[in-house]
Design a protein around this nucleic acid. Structure first.
Length: 591
RNA sequence: CUGCCCGUAGCUCAAUCGGAUAGAGCACCAGCCUUCUAAGCUGGGGGUUACAGGUUCGAUUCCUGUCGGGCAGGCCA
């Protein structure tokens, strides 16, 4: 209905333009006016066409404006500035917004699409080798909001977490846990410097003992080190020393696998299940849920990695060199070719990622959205190149980069403790500032901008804190509605039938305009992949309401006016609630 | 060294495929509660949109260069 208004007006303007300039068909685009006094919608067609039509823009605008058909929607049309055509809506159109918001309720702002796109949103996808940190938190908040926004905008969304359960990192974690576990049985082995050293590894070791007793401890500690190259001195930081430490670690992993034999797989799976379970709980408490947990290992188990490579091979995009197998990604704009199978026969991470993307396409999505940390930006050309090489349309793949978040406490950086090099965990952040503040702060900035996360501000219980500012507006209205029900026997269910034509105060009309914009805001947030657009809109809406509340009493004596104002307030509450839900932030009834 | 991203008020950030007088919040100053939640509101000062060119009716937005910041340049993931 409301979305219709804009398209109806666009149609009116298109017809006017056609009668003035039938030979200059350009698409008419209406924009919401940025400034009060410039009407509700504005068009710059006259400015765009003036030159090629050789008519002064202002004059052209006048001629187009004069041809706009009479409509009950429009109060007036005026030409302003350099040649803008401003459309002013009839107040009755604004009044209808109230009915619209209240009848649609939780669905107000939602898009209806005849043919919804099937969209896959893959996000977080952190290695399950330790707790999520605040960097993952931003990806989680952004991805979850984006997925909700796309869904609300009318698409069919699948939320997916890609589990890197096949790689060396998981082996390192399994080994680390095993060594800590052996420690519990008095079987001490020097812990490798590049193993996982976090407290959670000790915890898992104890859990492993509780669950499986000494099943993995029936080994000779000497055999663990057999054939393992010695470590270089700790103070050596050169490349050769690093390489020695890596091969030391790899040798330990090999021995672990050899000594445990079949039991290694269950150790690996135990560690994986623990970490994934922890991650899932963490995210669930953050209000972030997934439809699919996609296993990297399954790509190997089902032969999909080999199949993808074979497909590239057939298409002539692979070649052998130096004993390795390479993908000719330079043919697709990458700066160098990339190895897909190492000299030792092992496929690279990139190889499984190619298979993963092929699989995404084969599942039939219209759009595929990858949300990555910005440090992966160099990875984009090779993935898009691989997709193209597989004969797929790379334009259906969108990669949204999320920049790092830096925490500040007392004006000082706090995101990384400099001594241990460990990141602050997402869980610690949630414990400190709460879920709502964390979710909102993460999406308050454009995702591809660095984020300064002010912990002190997030914890402030005042209007300085945007979380409270938004929630307070919602709670305030909820309180008014309760008061209205108890003092005036108000029936919320009746509000959608209230006659709102008495709403004529400029502040009321501003609120109605703001409410009317919400569907377009959702649409913009969806098409731009920009949850922050919702956040900024909500701040504007809340501010408009707080202003109105301070200036005008809602529960006045005159029944008709009181009911109209209550209905208006109820619309603001509903719209705030809908927007907050898209951001994963609670909308409290009372504060 | 090369590539990508970013430079907007003192600070943190917006700005609808290039639009009208570049907007908010914080901080600073001055005000508003006997009335539906003051976790709120009103007013004020604050800008050469890093810099220099270019494209055009019009540039924070597009192009080139300079300066400054971030990230990336593995047979790691």
């Amino acid at each position: 209905m409301i979305a219709d208004i804009q398209s109806q007006l666009t149609e009116l303007l298109s017809r006017a333009l056609f009668s003035v300039a039938p030979d200059f068909g350009i698409e008419v685009r209406l924009a919401r006016s940025r400034q009060e006094g410039h009407g509700d919608f504005t068009s710059n067609v006259a400015l765009q066409l003036a030159k090629q039509m050789k008519i002064p823009p202002r004059q052209l605008a006048e001629r187009v404006a004069a041809e706009i058909p009479v409509s009950s929607l429009l109060a007036r049309v005026e030409v302003a500035g350099a040649g803008f055509i401003n459309l002013h809506l009839e107040a009755s159109v604004l009044h209808e917004v109230v009915h619209e918001v209240l009848t649609r309720g939780e669905r107000y702002g939602a898009g209806v699409r005849e043919t919804p796109n099937r969209v896959l949103v893959e996000f977080v996808s952190a290695n399950p080798t330790g707790p999520l940190h605040v960097g993952h938190g931003r990806g989680a908040a952004y991805g979850a909001s984006l997925a909700d926004i796309l869904e609300f905008a009318g698409h069919a969304v699948t939320r997916e977490y890609y589990v890197n359960d096949a790689g060396r990192q998981m082996d390192i974690l399994a080994l680390s846990t095993w060594l800590r576990y052996l420690d519990l049985f008095g079987l001490s082995v020097h812990f490798p410097p590049n193993g996982y050293r976090g407290d959670y590894v000790f915890t898992m070791a104890r859990q492993l003992r509780e669950a499986h007793g000494d099943r993995y401890a029936r080994v000779d500690p000497v055999s663990i080190l057999s054939g393992v190259p010695p470590l270089p001195p700790a103070e050596r930081g050169d490349g050769e020393a690093q390489a020695l430490r890596e091969s030391h670690l790899d040798a330990l992993i090999d021995n672990c696998k050899y000594l445990l034999a079949d039991a290694y797989r269950s150790l690996h799976d135990f560690v994986l299940a623990e970490q994934l379970g922890d991650c899932r709980n963490d995210l669930a408490e953050f209000g972030v849920h997934f439809d699919v947990w996609f296993s990297e290992r399954s790509l190997y188990d089902l032969g999909l990695v080999e199949r993808a490579l074979a497909q590239l091979e057939r298409a002539g995009h692979l070649y052998s060199q130096d004993g390795a197998l390479w993908f000719r990604s330079t043919a697709f704009g990458d700066e160098k070719d990339r190895v897909v199978r190492r000299e030792n026969g092992q496929p690279t991470y990139f190889a499984s990622d190619i298979a993963y993307h092929l699989n995404k396409y084969e599942r039939g999505f219209d759009r595929i959205v990858n949300i990555w940390g910005a440090d992966h930006h160099g990875y984009i050309p090779r993935v898009k190149g691989a997709v193209t090489a597989l004969g797929l349309d790379a334009h259906r793949l969108d990669i949204a980069l999320v920049q790092f978040a830096v925490l500040y406490r007392n004006g000082q950086k706090a995101s990384m403790s400099t001594r241990s090099g460990e990141f602050v965990t997402l869980r610690a952040l949630r414990d400190e500032v709460g879920r709502d503040a964390a979710r909102l702060f993460y999406v308050l900035r454009k995702s591809d901008q660095h984020l300064d996360f002010d912990l002190d501000l997030a914890k402030t219980e005042s209007s300085d804190n945007p979380v409270y500012y938004l929630q307070y507006a919602h709670a305030r209205i909820a309180s008014i509605l309760r008061e209205w029900q108890s003092q005036y026997d108000g029936e919320p269910g009746e509000l959608e039938r209230v006659d709102c034509s008495c709403l004529s105060d400029p502040a009321e009309l501003r609120l109605l305009r703001e409410l009317m914009a919400f569907p377009a805001v959702v649409d913009e947030a969806a098409s731009q992949y920009a949850p922050h657009v919702i956040a900024f809109y909500l701040k504007d809406l809340a501010a408009e309401f707080h202003r109105y509340y301070t200036a005008s009493r809602i529960l006045v004596d005159v029944t008709a006016l009181r009911e109209a104002r209550v209905a208006l307030a109820a619309c603001v509450r509903q719209t705030l609630a809908n927007g907050l839900r898209l951001l994963g932030v609670g909308a409290p009834e009372a504060m």
